[in-house]
Simulated scan of single mutants.
Amino acid sequence: MSWRGRDVVSIRDFTRRDLEELFDKTRQMEAHARGRLDLLKGKILAVAFFEPSTRTRLSFETAMKRLGGDVIGFSSAEGTSVEKGETLADTIRMLDSYADAIVIRHRAEGAAKFAAEVAEAPVINAGDGAFNHPTQAMLDLYTIWRIKGRVDGLRVGIMGDLKYARTVNSLLEGLALFDVDVYLISPEFLRPRQETLDYIESRGLKYKLLAKVEEILPDLDVLYVVRIQKERFLDPLEYERVKGSYKVTAHMLKGAKEDLIVLHPLPRVDELDPSVDKTRHAAYFKQAAYGVPLRMALLSLILS
């Protein structure tokens, strides 16, 4: 399927070949991530962010401007007609009449799919609800591919809140396109949703559920960390009991492979100690930086 004019709602809508094409294009765009191309001159991207964002929103805006295009939109519902009671459908129709593509982030699951049904222009999901964040998964997979030179054959650990972190759901669905071993490390009640587990099982992804990272850390090639969300715990004492077990420190990584890479979608709180920043394993800032060329590649494939 061609990328041109395509919606990006869920990682499930893409094949391995699609992602490999995107990776090759991203690799080319790295040379221009600090420059300017005129590939999308005259095109306008609308960013509709109903939830806070730093990296995703700014990397999309930077990518569009690096490609010679322009950006309109908002970074919160404040100051827009949403405060007056405007429906999501009407907001999307308005943006659709102004722009060549729409990037949306929304608190409600299914918002991006709904927007894609309303708009004629391509719609890109920048995170909706607690389930989908396809371009983050594309970025995560690209970072692994770029640093490791491959995705197949790797052992990937994913640690933290695996139930409510939308980055995790999309990443797992993306990893299901490759031949990898995945280790899901979390408290029992924060394991991935059954729907996600059912999907990756149907795609043949090999995974194992673990309670502690120490059980598998020496064997990992990639450790992907997300925040344990304190607000999900009914008992504060239970949170205090587990939070230390889901924190990565430089000392902990002394037993890891020399070429282990640690990834994090950011922002971090206390689950990833700053001491890790100075180790050879830290790849999360490079991961964030790759967001610009990856989204340049994505926009150029969809709009040019």
Rank of each mutant, 00 (worst) to 15 (best):
V8C: 09
R12K: 15
I302C: 03
P122Y: 00
K84P: 10
A46R: 04
D179P: 11
E61P: 08
L197P: 02
L39P: 00
E117Y: 04
I124Y: 04
V156C: 08
M1V: 15
S245A: 14
G149W: 03
F178K: 07
L205P: 07
L197A: 02
D140P: 13
T279D: 03
K65D: 01
L67A: 09
R150L: 08
E271N: 10
Y224S: 12
L40Y: 11
D161N: 13
A99L: 04
R227H: 09
L303F: 02
L263R: 12
V182Y: 01
V71L: 12
A46W: 01
Y239L: 02
V248I: 15
A33D: 06
T249M: 10
G5Q: 09
G291Y: 12
D7Y: 03
A48S: 14
L237K: 15
V168W: 02
M252H: 00
G153M: 12
M159P: 11
A99I: 05
G42I: 09
Q136S: 06
Q194K: 14
R191E: 11
S170W: 01
V151M: 08
A112Q: 08
R36D: 01
F14D: 02
F285K: 07
I228A: 06
D96A: 07
D161K: 11
T167L: 03
K257M: 08
E51G: 00
I44S: 08
Q136V: 04
R55E: 00
V276P: 07
V118K: 07
A211W: 05
D140S: 13
R36M: 14
K230C: 03
A250Y: 04
D13P: 00
D96Y: 01
S76A: 13
M159L: 14
V248M: 10
S76V: 07
L39G: 02
G149M: 03
D152A: 13
R155Q: 13
F50P: 06
V9K: 13
T196A: 03
A77H: 05
P274V: 05
E173N: 09
F178H: 10
W145Y: 15
K254V: 02
I72C: 14
T56M: 06
L253M: 09
S300Q: 11
L88I: 14
K247N: 14
R6T: 00
D152S: 13
L260K: 13
E120M: 07
Q136C: 05
R203M: 14
I144E: 09
D100R: 11
G244I: 11
S76Q: 10
L39W: 14
L141Q: 06
D179W: 07
I200M: 08
G255E: 11
M29K: 15
D100H: 14
E61V: 03
G127L: 03
A101N: 01
G73W: 10
S75M: 06
S97D: 02
R34A: 15
A297K: 02
D152C: 13
T91Q: 00
L171Q: 00
K113C: 01
V168A: 06
L217E: 05
A256H: 12
A111Y: 07
L67V: 09
E21S: 14
N132I: 00
L217H: 04
V226D: 10
I92E: 07
S186T: 04
R105F: 05
